[in-house]
Design a protein around this nucleic acid. Structure first.
Lengths: 144, 144
DNA sequence: CTCAATGCAAACTATTTGCATTCGA
DNA sequence: TCGAATGCAAATAGTTTGCATTGAG
């Protein structure tokens, strides 16, 4: 579903309000590349809309996560990052520890194995995170 | 290898010093159950050794991670957690989002698939993290 | 002796909250 | 109009650091 429509529905269902700032943040959020932190989005927004406060960006991103159009990520650098969620698809990440490059991938077989692991422990999976840390091709080559 | 021996070797190789506090922290660390935060270990230590400071616990855990006898974990609750590393074995985690229960598991097939994913992206994996979040059997039952 | 480690307090970073004001429904 | 949202500043939580003192090698 269209994220903007999804957001509008969530907002009206919850009796919240759809402000100018929220629309600006949503557009910038969708147009940005994934995996940015609150701060990065805030700085980017500030270039064009210097009146938008950090707290608003933060609260709005939380709201996006709440209504399912954003996912929170944490790659261990102490910053929470966000990325747009598109439908039901799920992907995981390769993270280059040298240059910070992030590559997304999907591997249905891994997901299946996860289900079987969960089953043997009588666990009901709600979600998961899988990150592979290492060197991308370029950094591995430069490392020689 | 014995973690204590491993630590002693690392310390002398690096020209560091092996203090009383470090031994106390190491013993408590090894005796504790896994997945505690710096704060939890600090509070536990303080019961018996009230003179040990938080900063010392923190720096010592970092040191353990550095010399390979501890692994840092982050389950998204904003606290860094540590667990003892035993040899080469690797395990991942099932995390109950309701009661906080953490179950460890190993699944070599998943590791293999990770390698193949990495290979298709010319990635060299150094390490990875896989966490499955959901409900444990007890919480799923209580949820009915 | 020398230099690393300690313990305390203070600094820092990321995140969250209180509150007076603004603004959407 | 009424309550949610905003923007600012201040509070909080977790982590890290500066520095005078202590202690291991």
């Amino acid at each position: 579903m269209d994220p903007i429509k999804q957001f509008n529905e969530y907002v009206s269902r919850k009796g919240l309000k759809n402000t100018n700032q929220r629309m600006i943040i949503l557009e910038t959020f969708l147009a940005s590349e994934s995996h940015f932190s609150t701060e990065e989005l805030y700085l980017k927004l500030r270039e064009e809309y210097p009146k938008i406060g950090y707290a608003t960006v933060h609260r709005t991103l939380k709201l996006f996560a709440e209504c399912g159009i954003a996912a929170e990520r944490n790659f261990g650098d102490g910053q929470t990052r966000f990325e747009p969620v598109h439908g039901e698809e799920h992907h995981d990440h390769l993270v280059c520890t040298s240059c910070g490059l992030i590559i997304e991938f999907e591997e249905p077989q891994i997901e299946k194995l996860q289900e079987s692991v969960a089953a043997t422990h009588q666990f009901t999976i709600e979600n998961h995170r899988l990150e592979l840390y290492g060197l991308c091709a370029a950094c591995a080559a430069a490392d020689q």
